[in-house]
């Protein structure tokens, strides 16, 4: 697998896991007493963080809330660097 494919695949994983969080967040907004949903929501946040870390370690932060990894800095990662989402 080349670098670009790996990047796209890891990013897709982040998109999937983040989407689960989005979906549970909306659900729990209108079901605030659903303990099972709240548990799954907390679990989804954890899993999304794992997927994000996997991507960011290699390809650099997706937002400025993450600390740039040594690996990303070594290959010259900068925030102001393409590809931007619409260029991918």
């Amino acid at each position: 697998m080349n670098n670009f494919d790996e990047r796209v695949n890891l990013l897709k994983k982040v998109q999937q896991m983040d989407f689960v969080v989005v979906e549970w967040t909306l659900y729990t907004d209108t079901h605030p007493n659903d303990e099972d949903a709240l548990e799954q929501w907390r679990e989804a946040i954890k899993e999304a963080a794992v997927a994000r870390k996997q991507y960011e370690n290699k390809f650099g932060p997706l937002s400025l809330k993450s600390i740039p990894s040594r690996q990303a800095l070594e290959v010259g990662w900068r925030w102001n660097q393409d590809p931007w989402p619409w260029q991918l």
């Binding site: 998109q15 983040d18 989407f19 997706l62 937002s63 989402p85």
Partner: peptide, 12 residues
């Protein structure tokens, strides 16, 4: 708001 350098869902 904080910008996330990714789309919500892929666009091909």
């Amino acid at each position: 708001w904080v910008y996330e350098k990714k789309l919500l869902y892929p666009v091909e």
